[in-house]
Protein backbone atom coordinates (compact mmCIF):
# COMPACT_ATOMS: atom_id res chain seq x y z
CA UNK A 1 0.00 0.00 0.00
CA UNK A 2 1.29 3.43 -0.91
CA UNK A 3 1.17 6.32 1.47
CA UNK A 4 -1.60 8.18 -0.32
CA UNK A 5 -4.01 5.23 -0.40
CA UNK A 6 -3.42 4.76 3.35
CA UNK A 7 -4.36 8.38 3.93
CA UNK A 8 -7.48 8.09 1.78
CA UNK A 9 -8.72 4.93 3.49
CA UNK A 10 -8.06 6.59 6.84
CA UNK A 11 -10.09 9.65 5.82
CA UNK A 12 -12.95 7.51 4.52
CA UNK A 13 -12.94 5.47 7.73
CA UNK A 14 -13.10 8.56 9.92
CA UNK A 15 -15.91 10.01 7.80
CA UNK A 16 -17.97 6.82 8.07
CA UNK A 17 -17.36 6.76 11.81
CA UNK A 18 -18.51 10.37 12.19
CA UNK A 19 -21.62 9.84 10.05
CA UNK A 20 -22.76 6.73 11.91
CA UNK A 21 -22.06 8.41 15.23
CA UNK A 22 -24.26 11.32 14.18
CA UNK A 23 -27.07 8.95 13.30
CA UNK A 24 -27.06 6.88 16.43
CA UNK A 25 -26.00 9.32 19.11
CA UNK A 26 -28.57 9.06 21.89
CA UNK A 27 -30.10 11.94 23.80
CA UNK A 28 -30.00 14.52 20.98
CA UNK A 29 -33.24 13.53 19.29
CA UNK A 30 -34.54 16.53 17.26
CA UNK A 31 -37.36 18.56 18.79
CA UNK A 32 -40.81 17.61 17.44
CA UNK A 33 -41.16 19.34 14.10
CA UNK A 34 -43.36 22.43 14.08
CA UNK A 35 -46.20 22.70 11.61
CA UNK A 36 -45.37 25.55 9.30
CA UNK A 37 -48.21 27.59 7.87
CA UNK A 38 -47.39 30.07 5.12
CA UNK A 39 -49.75 33.03 4.94
CA UNK A 40 -49.73 35.55 2.06
CA UNK A 41 -51.32 38.76 3.32
CA UNK A 42 -52.05 42.16 1.75
CA UNK A 43 -49.56 44.83 2.85
CA UNK A 44 -52.25 46.84 4.66
CA UNK A 45 -52.60 43.91 7.08
CA UNK A 46 -48.94 44.02 8.16
CA UNK A 47 -49.49 45.29 11.72
CA UNK A 48 -52.71 43.42 12.44
CA UNK A 49 -51.66 40.04 11.01
CA UNK A 50 -48.29 40.12 12.77
CA UNK A 51 -50.13 40.48 16.08
CA UNK A 52 -52.76 37.87 15.19
CA UNK A 53 -50.05 35.37 14.20
CA UNK A 54 -48.25 35.97 17.50
CA UNK A 55 -51.45 35.42 19.46
CA UNK A 56 -52.15 32.23 17.50
CA UNK A 57 -48.64 30.86 17.99
CA UNK A 58 -48.90 31.54 21.71
CA UNK A 59 -52.07 29.44 21.85
CA UNK A 60 -50.67 26.75 19.49
CA UNK A 61 -46.99 26.21 20.31
CA UNK A 62 -46.74 23.44 17.70
CA UNK A 63 -47.53 25.84 14.84
CA UNK A 64 -45.21 28.35 13.22
CA UNK A 65 -46.79 30.97 11.00
CA UNK A 66 -44.71 32.39 8.18
CA UNK A 67 -46.08 35.72 6.96
CA UNK A 68 -45.41 37.19 3.54
CA UNK A 69 -46.72 40.73 3.02
CA UNK A 70 -47.00 42.44 -0.34
CA UNK A 71 -49.58 44.19 -2.53
CA UNK A 72 -52.54 41.87 -3.25
CA UNK A 73 -51.72 42.00 -6.96
CA UNK A 74 -48.14 40.91 -6.33
CA UNK A 75 -49.24 38.08 -4.02
CA UNK A 76 -51.75 36.89 -6.61
CA UNK A 77 -49.00 36.80 -9.26
CA UNK A 78 -46.74 34.88 -6.89
CA UNK A 79 -49.46 32.27 -6.25
CA UNK A 80 -50.11 32.03 -9.99
CA UNK A 81 -46.40 31.46 -10.56
CA UNK A 82 -46.45 28.56 -8.12
CA UNK A 83 -45.15 30.15 -4.93
CA UNK A 84 -45.93 28.02 -1.88
CA UNK A 85 -48.72 29.45 0.26
CA UNK A 86 -51.39 27.90 2.47
CA UNK A 87 -53.65 30.88 3.10
CA UNK A 88 -54.22 34.04 1.06
CA UNK A 89 -55.57 37.24 2.61
CA UNK A 90 -56.47 39.75 -0.11
CA UNK A 91 -57.28 43.46 0.23
CA UNK A 92 -60.00 43.18 -2.41
CA UNK A 93 -62.30 40.59 -3.96
CA UNK A 94 -60.89 41.13 -7.46
CA UNK A 95 -57.69 39.17 -6.94
CA UNK A 96 -59.37 36.44 -4.86
CA UNK A 97 -62.04 35.92 -7.54
CA UNK A 98 -59.36 35.75 -10.22
CA UNK A 99 -57.46 33.03 -8.34
CA UNK A 100 -60.71 31.12 -7.74
CA UNK A 101 -61.39 31.31 -11.46
CA UNK A 102 -58.02 29.70 -12.12
CA UNK A 103 -58.82 26.92 -9.66
CA UNK A 104 -56.01 27.91 -7.29
CA UNK A 105 -58.18 28.57 -4.22
CA UNK A 106 -60.50 26.17 -2.36
CA UNK A 107 -63.86 27.70 -3.29
CA UNK A 108 -65.85 27.00 -0.11
CA UNK A 109 -63.04 28.36 2.10
CA UNK A 110 -63.42 31.90 0.75
CA UNK A 111 -65.05 34.38 3.09
CA UNK A 112 -64.87 38.05 3.98
CA UNK A 113 -62.98 38.47 7.24
CA UNK A 114 -62.77 42.25 7.62
CA UNK A 115 -63.47 45.59 5.99
CA UNK A 116 -61.70 48.89 5.68
CA UNK A 117 -63.15 52.37 5.36
CA UNK A 118 -61.84 55.71 4.14
CA UNK A 119 -61.46 58.44 6.73
CA UNK A 120 -60.31 62.06 6.77
CA UNK A 121 -57.02 62.32 8.65
CA UNK A 122 -56.15 65.61 10.33
CA UNK A 123 -52.99 66.58 12.27
CA UNK A 124 -53.73 66.62 16.02
CA UNK A 125 -53.37 70.40 16.42
CA UNK A 126 -55.86 70.93 13.57
CA UNK A 127 -54.78 74.48 12.79
CA UNK A 128 -57.08 74.63 9.80
CA UNK A 129 -59.96 73.90 12.20
CA UNK A 130 -61.56 71.12 10.17
CA UNK A 131 -64.55 69.66 12.00
CA UNK A 132 -66.64 68.16 9.22
CA UNK A 133 -66.49 66.99 5.63
CA UNK A 134 -67.83 70.32 4.36
CA UNK A 135 -64.70 72.06 5.72
CA UNK A 136 -62.62 70.21 3.11
CA UNK A 137 -64.03 72.64 0.52
CA UNK A 138 -62.91 75.75 2.42
CA UNK A 139 -60.58 77.66 0.07
CA UNK A 140 -56.93 77.51 1.14
CA UNK A 141 -57.12 74.19 2.98
CA UNK A 142 -54.12 72.07 2.08
CA UNK A 143 -55.40 68.63 1.22
CA UNK A 144 -53.40 65.52 0.29
CA UNK A 145 -54.80 62.37 -1.30
CA UNK A 146 -53.61 59.33 -3.24
CA UNK A 147 -52.95 59.42 -6.97
CA UNK A 148 -55.80 58.08 -9.08
CA UNK A 149 -53.71 54.98 -9.80
CA UNK A 150 -53.32 53.72 -6.22
CA UNK A 151 -56.38 52.05 -4.64
CA UNK A 152 -56.80 54.53 -1.77
CA UNK A 153 -56.61 57.45 -4.21
CA UNK A 154 -59.05 55.80 -6.61
CA UNK A 155 -61.53 55.12 -3.79
CA UNK A 156 -61.16 58.70 -2.55
CA UNK A 157 -62.27 59.95 -5.97
CA UNK A 158 -65.15 57.47 -5.95
CA UNK A 159 -66.25 58.74 -2.53
CA UNK A 160 -66.08 62.35 -3.74
CA UNK A 161 -68.10 61.26 -6.76
CA UNK A 162 -70.82 59.92 -4.49
CA UNK A 163 -70.83 63.22 -2.59
CA UNK A 164 -71.02 65.17 -5.85
CA UNK A 165 -74.15 63.18 -6.75
CA UNK A 166 -75.75 63.94 -3.40
CA UNK A 167 -77.70 67.18 -3.06
CA UNK A 168 -76.21 67.70 0.42
CA UNK A 169 -72.81 68.40 -1.21
CA UNK A 170 -73.12 68.59 -5.00
CA UNK A 171 -70.56 68.88 -7.81
CA UNK A 172 -69.31 72.32 -6.67
CA UNK A 173 -68.25 70.72 -3.41
CA UNK A 174 -66.16 68.15 -5.25
CA UNK A 175 -64.57 70.83 -7.47
CA UNK A 176 -63.70 72.95 -4.43
CA UNK A 177 -62.18 69.95 -2.65
CA UNK A 178 -60.09 68.95 -5.68
CA UNK A 179 -58.85 72.55 -5.95
CA UNK A 180 -57.46 72.27 -2.42
CA UNK A 181 -55.31 69.26 -3.27
CA UNK A 182 -51.64 70.25 -2.91
CA UNK A 183 -50.24 66.79 -3.55
CA UNK A 184 -51.36 63.47 -4.98
CA UNK A 185 -49.24 61.06 -3.01
CA UNK A 186 -48.25 57.73 -4.55
CA UNK A 187 -48.09 55.98 -1.18
CA UNK A 188 -49.83 56.22 2.17
CA UNK A 189 -46.46 56.65 3.86
CA UNK A 190 -45.86 59.92 1.98
CA UNK A 191 -49.38 61.12 2.82
CA UNK A 192 -49.01 60.39 6.54
CA UNK A 193 -45.58 62.08 6.52
CA UNK A 194 -47.10 65.23 5.00
CA UNK A 195 -49.69 65.26 7.79
CA UNK A 196 -47.21 64.47 10.57
CA UNK A 197 -44.97 67.42 9.82
CA UNK A 198 -48.08 69.61 9.63
CA UNK A 199 -47.45 70.54 6.03
CA UNK A 200 -50.90 69.37 4.96
CA UNK A 201 -54.13 70.26 6.78
CA UNK A 202 -55.98 67.07 5.92
CA UNK A 203 -55.60 63.84 3.99
CA UNK A 204 -57.89 61.02 2.92
CA UNK A 205 -56.80 57.41 3.38
CA UNK A 206 -57.89 54.12 4.91
CA UNK A 207 -58.37 54.19 8.66
CA UNK A 208 -56.08 51.16 9.00
CA UNK A 209 -53.28 53.01 7.18
CA UNK A 210 -52.56 55.06 10.28
CA UNK A 211 -50.01 53.14 12.32
CA UNK A 212 -50.27 52.66 16.07
CA UNK A 213 -47.66 55.38 16.75
CA UNK A 214 -49.20 57.82 14.28
CA UNK A 215 -52.66 57.45 15.86
CA UNK A 216 -51.56 59.73 18.69
CA UNK A 217 -50.63 62.42 16.16
CA UNK A 218 -53.69 62.27 13.94
CA UNK A 219 -57.41 62.91 14.36
CA UNK A 220 -59.67 60.63 12.32
CA UNK A 221 -62.85 62.08 10.93
CA UNK A 222 -65.19 59.31 9.77
CA UNK A 223 -66.79 59.46 6.32
CA UNK A 224 -70.43 58.26 6.42
CA UNK A 225 -71.02 54.83 4.87
CA UNK A 226 -73.29 56.20 2.15
CA UNK A 227 -70.34 58.12 0.67
CA UNK A 228 -67.57 55.79 1.76
CA UNK A 229 -65.98 53.18 -0.44
CA UNK A 230 -65.72 50.15 1.81
CA UNK A 231 -62.92 47.74 0.93
CA UNK A 232 -63.78 44.10 1.52
CA UNK A 233 -60.99 41.70 2.57
CA UNK A 234 -61.55 38.04 1.67
CA UNK A 235 -59.46 35.07 2.81
CA UNK A 236 -59.11 31.73 1.05
CA UNK A 237 -57.16 28.49 1.42
CA UNK A 238 -54.76 27.77 -1.42
CA UNK A 239 -55.62 24.60 -3.36
CA UNK A 240 -51.99 23.40 -3.32
CA UNK A 241 -51.75 23.57 0.48
CA UNK A 242 -50.75 20.34 2.23
CA UNK A 243 -51.96 21.56 5.61
CA UNK A 244 -55.50 22.67 4.77
CA UNK A 245 -56.77 21.73 8.25
CA UNK A 246 -54.26 23.99 9.97
CA UNK A 247 -54.97 26.76 7.47
CA UNK A 248 -58.68 26.43 8.22
CA UNK A 249 -57.99 26.57 11.96
CA UNK A 250 -55.94 29.75 11.57
CA UNK A 251 -58.63 31.27 9.32
CA UNK A 252 -61.14 30.45 12.06
CA UNK A 253 -58.92 32.26 14.57
CA UNK A 254 -58.69 35.39 12.39
CA UNK A 255 -62.50 35.69 12.36
CA UNK A 256 -62.82 34.85 16.08
CA UNK A 257 -63.55 37.49 18.69
CA UNK A 258 -59.86 37.62 19.59
CA UNK A 259 -58.71 38.04 15.97
CA UNK A 260 -61.41 40.60 15.31
CA UNK A 261 -60.38 42.64 18.35
CA UNK A 262 -56.85 42.93 16.95
CA UNK A 263 -58.16 43.96 13.51
CA UNK A 264 -60.38 46.62 15.10
CA UNK A 265 -57.41 47.93 17.07
CA UNK A 266 -55.65 48.50 13.74
CA UNK A 267 -58.58 50.49 12.34
CA UNK A 268 -60.36 47.73 10.43
CA UNK A 269 -64.13 47.38 10.47
CA UNK A 270 -65.67 44.08 11.62
CA UNK A 271 -67.89 42.12 9.26
CA UNK A 272 -71.55 41.91 10.30
CA UNK A 273 -72.63 38.32 10.69
Amino acid sequence: MTRSTTLISLAVGITILLLTAGCTSPGTAPAPEKNELTVFAAASLTGAMTDIAKAYEAAHPDTKIILNFDGSQALRTQIEQGAHADLFLSANTKHMTALQGEGLIVNDSVKTFTKNKLAVLIPKDNRANITGLSDLATPGIRLVMGTKEVPFGDYTRQALGKMANDTAYGPEFRNAVMKNVVSEDPAVTALVAHLRVGEADAGIAYASDVSEEDKALVIMLPIPDRYNVIAVYPLGIVQESKVKDQAAAFAQFITSTEGNAILIRYGFVPVDR
Binding site: V144, T147, V181, V182, S183, E184, D185, P186, A190, A193, H194
Partner: peptide
Protein backbone atom coordinates in the same frame (compact mmCIF):
# COMPACT_ATOMS: atom_id res chain seq x y z
CA UNK B 1 -39.35 65.95 -4.62
CA UNK B 2 -42.33 63.80 -3.63
CA UNK B 3 -41.81 64.63 0.06
CA UNK B 4 -40.98 68.33 -0.18
CA UNK B 5 -42.85 69.43 -3.31
CA UNK B 6 -45.61 66.85 -3.50
CA UNK B 7 -47.08 65.57 -6.72
CA UNK B 8 -49.41 67.84 -8.69
CA UNK B 9 -49.68 67.92 -12.46
CA UNK B 10 -48.28 71.05 -14.07
CA UNK B 11 -46.93 72.37 -10.78
CA UNK B 12 -44.69 69.82 -9.09
CA UNK B 13 -45.18 66.63 -11.08
CA UNK B 14 -41.86 66.06 -12.85
CA UNK B 15 -41.18 63.11 -15.19
CA UNK B 16 -39.97 60.67 -12.50
CA UNK B 17 -43.11 61.39 -10.45
Amino acid sequence: TIMFAGNLQGKTQTMPL
